[in-house]
Amino acid sequence: MKVAIAGGHGKIALLLARQLADAGHEAVSLIRKPEQSDDVRAAGGTPVVLDLENSTATQVAEALAGCDAAVFAAGAGPSSGAARKWTVDRDGAVLLAAGAQLAGAYRFVVVSSMGAGQGDAESDDVFQVYLAAKGEADDAVRESGLDWTIVRPGQLTDDPGTGRVTVGEHVGRGAIPRADVAAVLVAVLDRPSTVRTTFELVGGDTPVGEALEALPSGPLV
């Protein structure tokens, strides 16, 4: 499988590229800066320079040519202001979805956030705006013609992955290593039963494959 990863220089994205490569897949990592290319190659991905904030759906489709799937793992980052929560976290996901449709990369996975859609778009709290933007992005992806899955992890850590998680419609607050989020993304891509499913994700005691198999098929919102 050839998989495009938006936000290709992010922590989850680099882990995902490595895990995809190790599983025999091909990762195409979309990055904003050419100087990030060496890190992507070291992780096993193929870098493609594309700025989602300054691109068209046609340009995105060209970058995704030949891809079977796309993963939205981009984000404006914790130090960004409210405006970029809309232009990256929301609009970037919408644009990637449009480009994926044009390119025929119909399998589409979103790295969202626990609490997405529960924020306040008018708040002075940037995190509240972030949650609002992520919710609108998720809604837009659900309305697309893509075979989508929306993954909503809890607090992200850089701890080593355990390969064990808890998934479900609502799992309660918790943390999860980024490496385990990446492992779930790889597993989701190979599981048609997760298409059109939204689920929360934290660390747990169940192996990734077993946890995903236990999810009810069809929409969880």
Rank of each mutant, 00 (worst) to 15 (best):
M114F: 10
W86R: 15
A76K: 13
V94G: 01
V94E: 05
A74W: 06
A97H: 07
V110S: 03
V94H: 02
L95P: 05
R90W: 02
G81F: 08
R107G: 11
F72R: 00
T87A: 13
L96H: 00
A93E: 01
V109S: 09
M114D: 00
L96M: 11
M114G: 00
A116S: 15
A74G: 08
S113V: 12
W86Y: 15
L102M: 12
G81P: 05
L96K: 00
G77N: 05
Y106R: 15
L102P: 01
T87D: 09
A103T: 10
A97W: 10
F72G: 01
A74S: 08
V111P: 03
S113Y: 02
S80P: 10
A73G: 03
L95A: 03
A103F: 12
G99N: 09
W86S: 13
A105P: 11
G81C: 14
A74H: 05
S112Q: 13
S112T: 14
S80K: 10
R90P: 08
A76P: 14
G92D: 06
A97P: 11
A73Y: 01
Q101F: 14
A105H: 12
S79P: 03
G77A: 04
A97T: 09
P78I: 07
S79D: 13
A76H: 11
Y106Q: 14
P78H: 04
S113H: 03
G81K: 04
G81D: 09
Y106E: 12
A97M: 14
V110C: 10
L102N: 06
G92V: 08
Y106W: 05
S80V: 08
K85G: 05
W86Q: 15
A74N: 02
D89N: 08
G104N: 06
V71C: 01
A116R: 11
F72K: 00
G99T: 01
G75M: 12
G92L: 09
V111D: 04
A116D: 07
D91S: 07
S113Q: 05
S79H: 13
D91F: 14
R107V: 04
A74M: 04
F72H: 06
F108A: 07
W86P: 14
R84G: 07
Q118A: 15
Q118G: 11
G99E: 06
V110N: 07
G117N: 10
S113F: 04
W86F: 15
G75Y: 02
V109A: 09
A103L: 13
R90F: 00
A83R: 04
V111S: 02
Q118P: 06
A116Q: 10
L95T: 00
L95Y: 08
